[in-house]
Design a protein around this nucleic acid. Structure first.
Lengths: 168, 168
DNA sequence: GACGGATATTAGGATATCAATGTTTTGCAC
DNA sequence: GTGCAAAACATTGATATCCTAATATCCGTC
């Protein structure tokens, strides 16, 4: 994690100037916005991973665990989870593989569809998910370093972007 | 790319409701904002990769190529690139490995520092970078699907987040 | 001249995507 | 209804990428 040396100027602002200098004015703001998103994701995911590492979780596995803990039965078909979390079936398989080896999830045959497999959260999984959420709430989600107004602006704008991409 | 099935409701809004239902009100907005960032990055990066794939580039390699094309000499030390693009030294090494095998970049010994290695862009690299930028401008950066006002809101808020993280 | 720091690389582990496969369900023609 | 083709589900193997840790080389300072 030694890449975070402080720079004298904002690299994204510098790139935006370059875009305008090359006559790509129409794309300059969009480029800067996209690059900002990529970089912001890098920052928050790094914080999240730092918090989750002592709990032996990654963000992907945490999302699965939390999703399962919110369901009535504590279980969901693999495909359903992939659709809700927007991840590939193979990613679900490997994440559940790991969660199962950690004892946080069990694979259960689907009661009516013999193709499908349910992932079912265990008591240990529930406890770990709760610990992780508590840690993330206090150390990441409540510490973004921007104002509440800005947080809501962010949510609104990104919801528009997601909606436009056909997310929901 | 079959994960993009349209959902009936917004999963992030659903998660936010769950957070509030569990009494985690203080963290709910931040959680929703962070999750939105992660998902937005997923969306834009997927579009970028789709555009860059026919050009045999990834976003990381494209960033390196474009950065080099903006310099006076067309070359930079590896470490300097890692600092500017906020990526690990190992990522720079492997990206330059690939770019070099593609003929877009050459490794050149540093004139005064025998530890350092310069990555120098080739003519083929310049041409490919320009083609990629043209494609990205038209197909991604100018097509985000949100208003110009929203794009600038996004830039402003994320700059605050990045500044707070010590990016510049 | 020795030592700490910087530079780049290699090796190994984890994750994500793609392509292909085996199994099961579903839909449609008849 | 029956039977067959198409689609859905989960997995495996192959590939690419990123991060961590460790290593070898070189620079600069005391």
């Amino acid at each position: 994690m030694t890449i975070g040396r402080t720079l004298e100027s904002d690299p994204i602002e510098e790139a935006r100037r370059q875009w305008i200098a090359h006559g790509w004015d129409n794309a300059a703001e969009g480029m800067a916005a996209v690059t900002s998103i990529v970089r912001a994701q890098q920052i928050v995911l790094q914080r999240i991973d730092t918090v989750l590492r002592p709990l032996d979780l990654t963000f992907a596995r945490y999302e699965i665990l939390t999703l399962l803990s919110f369901t009535r039965t504590g279980s969901l078909p693999m495909t359903k989870m992939g659709a809700l979390l927007q991840v590939h079936p193979t990613s679900v398989t490997s994440a559940v593989d790991r969660l199962e080896s950690q004892g946080f999830v069990e694979r259960v045959p689907h009661p009516t569809d013999r193709r499908a497999v349910l992932a079912s959260i265990t008591e240990a999984g529930r406890a770990r998910a709760l610990a992780a959420t508590t840690a993330l709430n206090g150390q990441v989600f409540e510490q973004l370093g921007i104002t509440e107004h800005q947080i809501n602006q962010l949510r609104t704008v990104l919801r528009a972007l997601r909606a436009n991409a056909g997310d929901f």
